[in-house]
Simulated scan of single mutants.
Amino acid sequence: MAGFVSKQPNGLYCRFSTVTDCPTTWNMTREDYINMKMQEAKEDAEDVLDNYLKPFDMVMDMYYPNNMTKEEFDKFLEETGYSKGE
């Protein structure tokens, strides 16, 4: 986060950008700030799903039985609909 949030003297909130060196949003209620962050998260999530998906083969190629056993991974594959013939 290239900035910070501050509580203003009037009890509302502002966001200060350390990139632009000035406030970028002000007089926000707590709910306004939460809604802004939720919208940003939704837009980020949509961007990932629309533009940055990786092929499922990468999941197969990068799996290492360090934190999930081979049996657990095989169950995961079954639950995702993976078939060894694909």
Rank of each mutant, 00 (worst) to 15 (best):
T20G: 01
V48C: 05
Y63F: 14
K54H: 11
E43G: 06
K54Q: 11
M60C: 13
A45K: 02
D50K: 09
C22W: 08
Y63P: 05
M38T: 00
N10L: 11
T80S: 10
W26Y: 14
A2L: 09
E79Y: 05
Q8P: 04
D44G: 09
M68S: 08
K84D: 13
D50I: 07
K7Y: 02
D44I: 10
T18H: 00
G11Y: 05
E40I: 13
T18A: 03
E43A: 10
K42R: 07
D21H: 15
E46T: 03
V5N: 07
G3H: 01
F76A: 11
E31S: 15
V19R: 02
T24S: 09
P65N: 13
E31Y: 14
E79G: 02
K54G: 01
D50T: 10
D47G: 12
S17F: 12
G81H: 00
C22R: 08
D47Y: 11
E40S: 13
V59L: 13
E43W: 06
F16K: 01
E79C: 07
F16E: 03
D61V: 02
L53D: 04
F73E: 00
R15V: 08
P65L: 13
T29M: 06
E78Y: 00
D32P: 08
K37V: 15
Y52A: 03
R15N: 05
M60W: 08
S17I: 06
N67T: 13
Y33Q: 04
T69P: 11
Q8L: 12
Y82V: 06
G11I: 05
A45M: 07
E86Y: 08
D74G: 07
S17R: 05
Q39Y: 14
T69E: 10
K54F: 12
N51P: 02
D47W: 12
E78G: 01
L12P: 01
S17P: 03
E43F: 07
K37W: 15
A2R: 03
Q8A: 08
V19D: 05
P9T: 14
A2M: 06
K70F: 04
N27K: 04
D44Q: 09
L49S: 05
K37L: 15
D21S: 13
P9N: 15
T80F: 00
Y33V: 02
M36Y: 08
M38K: 04
G81L: 00
T80M: 11
C22P: 00
Y52G: 00
R30S: 14
G3E: 02
Y13S: 05
M36K: 03
A41T: 01
M60A: 11
N35E: 07
T25L: 06
K75D: 12
T18D: 02
T69K: 03
